[in-house]
Amino acid sequence: MKITYDNANRLLKIEITEEIDHFMAEKIRNKVDFEIQEYIPRKILMDFEKVSFMDSAGIGMILGRYKTAKMLGSSFCITNVKPSIKKILEMSGILKIIPIVEK
């Protein structure tokens, strides 16, 4: 996982590089929540370009970070979602509340 913070735009960019299953989702959750609380960014962008695998643990992980963001008044978007991941997100219905942005 690579996390960068753009101070001028108060943008926290989270590039996930791991396979997202229950085991990894827990580690990602802890790290990302820590960073969000550290910076209190205005915008959070989670990038899935380097994610080669995701199961339903990803749904809970994304939704949970969206909730953390919302609680702190930050916006939350996801990007670079490949078809295999999109299929799972669509099934869960979370794309109705969490926007995918194209870069």
Binding site: A25, R29, D55, S56, A57, I59, G60, M61, L63, G64, I88, M91, S92
Partner: peptide, 22 residues
């Protein structure tokens, strides 16, 4: 059933069986 989970505190989504089925 989709979205049914007994462990919401672990951020489970209840989509496991739905995914296996589809």
């Amino acid at each position: 059933e989709p979205l049914y989970t007994t462990k919401p505190e672990l951020e489970r989504s209840g989509m496991g069986f739905t995914i296996m089925e589809s």
